[in-house]
Design a protein around this nucleic acid. Sequence first.
DNA 1: CGTAACTTTGATCTTTATCAAGCCTCGTGG
DNA 2: CCACGAGGCTTGATAAAGATCAAAGTTACG
Lengths: 216, 216
Amino acid sequence: MTLPILCPIVRRGVRLRAHCVSCAGTPPGGMQLAKGDFLYRQGDEARHVFAVTGGWLQVFVTTPDGKHAAARFVGPGDVIGLEALSPKTPTYLATTTALRTSRACAVSPSEMRTWFQENPDDAMALTALGVEDLATLQRRMVMNASLGADERVLELVKDFAARAQPGTWVELPATREQLGAVLGLTFETVSRALHRLADRGLIAVDGRRVRLEDGR
Amino acid sequence: MTLPILCPIVRRGVRLRAHCVSCAGTPPGGMQLAKGDFLYRQGDEARHVFAVTGGWLQVFVTTPDGKHAAARFVGPGDVIGLEALSPKTPTYLATTTALRTSRACAVSPSEMRTWFQENPDDAMALTALGVEDLATLQRRMVMNASLGADERVLELVKDFAARAQPGTWVELPATREQLGAVLGLTFETVSRALHRLADRGLIAVDGRRVRLEDGR
DNA sequence: CGTAACTTTGATCTTTATCAAGCCTCGTGG
DNA sequence: CCACGAGGCTTGATAAAGATCAAAGTTACG
């Protein structure tokens, strides 16, 4: 008999369902998304909180004037759609789409409510998790403002690599254009930056696969 | 007899203390900060959640390589320092400093815990509030990536104006340099952008005071 | 096997950073 | 009361980074 596989959610310290420890990414109610599917769209009524259990998704924001650009990538362990917990008529504040086949576990606000009532510690942990995401985004924002293209791309590559085995090839889940959308760069600049980093010996690039050279 | 003044926190739908409705920004335990004071520093042990009840503060992030830049401004109604709710040894993930005399109400995690237990709805509201902040930051990030200097500055001015009476002069709580730090621009560019916007008739500028012309 | 999407690479142009100089305002001390 | 100085603001000239335009090579997939 094998050991129970830990749900990715548990790895970030929050259990979205009581039975999450044994769900292994396919909980009852867990849903599968094909590449290009939308998990939800900005402005939709927010009926569920989602825990990503597999794959990669991209979060988009549409500004009032119609501009829209990517904000961040979310992968296993990330909890999104917390707008559903808002007391006012909750609407999603961003659009989330699958970059590849992905899995997400959906939880309704009413489930969340009883869970919060029984486990205030989990409620606090989830709130803190949101702040962690906020801090990550703040960090990325600072980088986008203060670093050049090469360093920004390197940081993003490191972020993806941090979720995989160290020293191995990592498949970037996005096109150059999608990477650039998050970094505030064009796809040409992303391409050039990747190759400049390779020239500097910091990474190895092979199409969409990347490996960190050197220490981490 | 005057009506009770609503604590700014209530305006964003979350009561950090049961008696918040009557605290009017000076709750027991509320603290005053002088210009330049630090509310907390990145890396400090996170002992309190803070609700800003007056003034303006700026949030900084320091990246691992020592770079640091401003991430956002926080004012009355904002709740910060939610890192304190993290179950692991909680440390603040950013530095917050007062741009002018400000007030903040500090609440300990244990207080939050009992409050969450009694009011799961408030817990959900607070979590949702965090997501709102995340969405705001995502929006700003998208703008920083996709808009030019003028439009970015205009958006920031609008944000400040949105918290004041429409059509009135608004005092920007920050220097050109501090505004630029948030926008990813230099102070010269911020200065030029403000005057270009004034030339275009979109705003009126008088030193640190600004007024939106036209509809909003 | 053929097409569409993606990627690389080059040349040129725009925007914003950088460097620099002078001005204004406010607070402090003689 | 005035002189001074520091911090902040404006404005100009130049340089660098990245966007844009363009063309050709590569990969994925029906």
